[in-house]
Nucleic acid binder design. Structure first.
Length: 468
RNA sequence: GUCCCCUUCGUCUAGUGGCCUAGGACAACGGCCUCUCACGCCGUAAACACGGGUUCGAGUCCCGUAGGGGACGCCA
């Protein structure tokens, strides 16, 4: 059997973390089994689906390499086919017309609920034809006949065997009075037509699986394997909502989270391979399995994502990171960077990247390499500016000016010798120098900075120290 | 309310009846390193929801209770 999985988001909002993880697991499962992963946009809710949403889904998935190889399928294109299936079901007596009004349904639901039933529709039109003129003038919806007796069991690949008594299953609507198919019908038809073998999705769909099971059956089609993965919750344990973390995936992209970090984080959220934490996509493909997906919901933890991101920042090449921060710096400084500045960034990157947990912070911490004199400084830095420190920094400058070789070790040796001969601690010259060089009291090591900045710029900055 | 699912450190998790005086990771705390901040390294604290069984033996199996989540649309 050729494995075929799919990710089927609805374009009615943003693509959030939970959706991305579902996509990731589908992709991984397909890769692992030498199968195919498909993307289907469920845009049948014409009122709520937006073009912008579709675009965001595409760009978010693309960012993480989860867009799939085939052209995405738009569910709305298949509506004629959905209707055809409904007609067939109707002609075979497996579905029927329901002439209920909205008011009737509302009443029915509240009374059923009051009576403590899960099934809310009373099947009143299951074996009935309209017999009054008023009823005949109502355009009916089409409902599917669910079995009345017995039980249904689904052998879910994550949840295990789950059984429900059929009396709890509603005869749900498959075609609206306006002739549009409902989600429940469209999913089943499309999953069949797309040859989907494994339906991997959030467990908010677990209940739907029973309904879909019988719809597949009524159509005479094979039932795919189901795998329902637990949902991701917010930091407070409640459902992921806009209030806490259910932001669009583009938010994390803008923040400067690396795709590798996001993939690794999401992979480990709900899935594990022993004690392994750092897992490349390549390894994930060979290790991934549905058996190791946990059954309990998990909470989204920004701290852990940050930690992973910091790790992958350190892993990436300096060139790659410089390319990422250039546009951000240009935006912050409202100017175009020249080659000299870009060169400083590249030289400074090894020490810069040890300190950043996301690309935005990395860009901010690199700002001083691209600023021109005079450098302003903040309150904390200002504490290191006084007559004594200015004098010290300037005399160090004179000493450094004589250096033939402008390398980290030479700079360090000279500076340390300067401290010794002036009978001060290294820190007493290092901090003021840092301020002179960066305008800040916090930065990478000063020798790395002087090296990256280059002789001329270093000496200019020292020379300018105290002139502000 | 009804149906379904879940329950190991604060968080993500390892654990498939004896290897568990419960392991790892993030976060927290302490230390080392040190020119600041980080990184790195070392260490500390921190959990089997509760109650019954089954068994020579239970985090692991069964039942119940409590708590949490999801679903109950002519939304997807």
């Amino acid at each position: 059997m050729k494995v075929v999985t799919r990710f089927a988001p609805s374009p009615t909002g943003f693509l959030h973390i939970g959706g991305v993880r579902t996509a990731l697991f589908n992709w991984l499962f397909a890769q692992k089994n030498g199968g195919i992963y498909k993307l289907r946009v469920e845009d049948t809710d014409l009122k709520r689906s937006t073009q912008e949403s579709i675009k965001k889904i595409y760009s978010g998935l693309e960012w993480l390499g989860l867009k799939g190889n085939d052209e995405p399928i738009l569910q709305s294109r298949n509506i004629p086919r959905h209707i055809e299936v409904v007609k067939k079901l109707l002609s075979e007596g497996k579905a029927y017309k329901c002439y209920c009004t909205q008011e009737e349904l509302v009443k029915m639901r509240s009374s059923s609920r009051a009576a403590g039933r899960t099934r809310l529709y009373d099947r009143r039109w299951r074996d009935k034809e309209p017999d009054t003129e008023i009823e005949e003038n109502i355009t009916p919806s089409i409902r599917i006949k669910m079995p009345i007796e017995g039980k249904t069991m689904i052998s879910d690949l994550i949840q295990g065997d789950v059984t429900v008594t059929n009396d709890n299953l509603d005869d749900f609507v498959i075609l609206r009075p306006d002739g549009t198919p409902t989600y429940m019908l469209a999913v089943v038809v499309d999953d069949h037509d797309m040859d989907i073998t494994h339906v991997i999705r959030g467990d908010d769909h677990l209940n739907n699986a029973f309904r879909q099971y019988h719809l597949f059956d009524a159509c005479g089609w094979d039932i795919p394997y189901f795998a329902h993965m637990p949902l991701i919750h917010g930091n407070d344990g409640a459902k992921l909502s806009k209030r806490h973390g259910a932001l669009g995936i583009d938010f994390y992209q803008d923040l400067g989270i690396l795709p590798q970090a996001m993939q690794n984080y999401l992979l480990r959220l709900g899935w594990s391979h022993g004690d392994d934490e750092i897992i490349s996509m390549e390894q994930a493909v060979s290790w991934f399995d549905l058996e190791s997906v946990g059954r309990a919901p998990s909470r989204f933890d920004m701290e852990k994502l940050n930690n992973l991101n910091a790790y992958y920042i350190k892993e990436n090449t300096d060139e790659f990171l410089v390319d990422l921060i250039i546009p951000r710096i240009e935006c912050l400084l409202s100017k175009t960077l020249n080659n000299c500045m870009k060169k400083r960034l590249l030289l400074g990157m090894p020490s810069l990247k040890q300190r950043a947990k996301n690309i935005n912070i990395l860009a901010e911490s690199a700002l001083f390499y691209c600023q021109e004199l005079p450098l302003g400084f903040n309150d904390k830095a200002a504490k290191f500016v006084n007559k004594g420190t200015i004098k010290n920094v300037k005399s160090l400058g004179k000493l450094l000016k004589k250096l033939d070789i402008w390398e980290v070790s030479e700079l360090e040796t000279s500076t340390k010798e300067f401290a010794i001969s002036n009978e001060i601690k290294l820190g007493e010259i290092a901090q003021p120098l840092r301020v002179a060089l960066t305008g800040s009291s916090v930065s990478p090591g000063i020798f790395d900075i002087m090296h990256a900045l280059g002789r001329d710029e270093t000496l200019s900055r020292i020379n300018d120290f105290g002139n502000q």
